[in-house]
């Protein structure tokens, strides 16, 4: 028996909006510690890892570990039927072949339930080691989204370079080239507006912009984003989900031959 009650149901709606274009089908894993997902895109270049910790739910009952295969397009269709202020409860029986999403309006005068069929999904689970990254950049998520969007009008790939001077995003294409440099700044008024660079050694990596643009669909989940980079390792693009968890995207770098 599984019953997860999320008061801020809009978070789940936003999570689905953030990942449904990257991943078609995925297994949601439910355990004592939380509700999680790890899935790769069809080309296995990008991976999304979601964690919603159990203590972030108003009510969290998970009698035994459960993996539920869901089509994210269909799940998104159902969650779109929830109001932004609705409380969402996810319910499933052990060994059942469906999951139920229950939506309650804040004033409790409207209750809906949507049942969705589950599916069997064979997916590879990757072991992602805890790593000390060479450079970690924290910046406003809207700024990162803007840079990715702007640069993708010029080129297909971006070089992200972190040095003591700041973080530089560079691209080039048929019509020309572009560089955007963000320097470390400290905002007294609002920590969300800060760009903070922690660097052990300079790092420069090249990525396909279309994946980064896809990741920025998570911008609505958090005012800040963190980019963690090490030489010749996938970048981690992390959006914290208020008080409850995170969504992390991993993207393999393009490597010079």
């Amino acid at each position: 028996m599984l019953e997860l009650r999320l008061v801020q149901g809009s978070l789940l709606k936003k999570v689905l909006d953030a990942i449904k274009d990257l991943v078609t089908d995925a297994n949601f894993d439910c355990s004592e510690s939380g509700f999680s997902l790890q899935a790769m895109d069809s080309s296995h270049v990008a991976l999304v890892a979601l964690l919603l910790r159990s203590d972030g739910f108003e009510h969290y009952r998970c009698d035994r570990n459960l993996s539920m295969g869901m089509n994210l397009t269909n799940m998104s269709k159902m969650l779109k039927c929830a109001g932004n202020d609705d409380i969402i409860t996810i319910k499933a029986d052990d060994g059942g072949d469906s999951v139920t999403f229950m939506f309650e309006s804040p004033s409790q005068d409207k209750v809906s339930d949507f049942e969705m069929k589950l599916m069997d999904i064979d997916s590879e689970h990757l072991g992602i080691p805890e790593t000390e990254y060479h450079a970690i950049v924290k910046m406003p998520s809207a700024e990162f989204a803007r840079i990715c969007r702007d640069l993708s009008t010029i080129g297909d790939t971006v070089v992200i370079s972190v040095s003591k001077d700041g973080v530089k995003f560079s691209t080039s294409g048929d019509i020309g080239s572009a560089n955007v440099v963000c320097r470390q700044n400290n905002s007294v008024d609002n920590k969300d507006n800060e760009t903070v660079i922690e660097m052990n050694e300079p790092v420069s990596l090249t990525f396909a912009l279309r994946y980064l643009n896809s990741f920025t669909k998570a911008t609505t989940l958090s005012n800040t984003v963190t980019l963690s980079m090490s030489k010749e390792l996938p970048v981690v693009v992390e959006y914290k989900i208020a008080e409850i968890g995170h969504i992390r995207f991993y993207l393999a770098p393009k490597i010079e031959d």
Partner: peptide, 14 residues
């Protein structure tokens, strides 16, 4: 002159 590896090249399959 770039090649794109899959994530399995970096992280072990469990």
């Amino acid at each position: 002159p770039f090649r794109q590896e899959g994530l399995e090249q970096f992280f072990p399959i469990q």
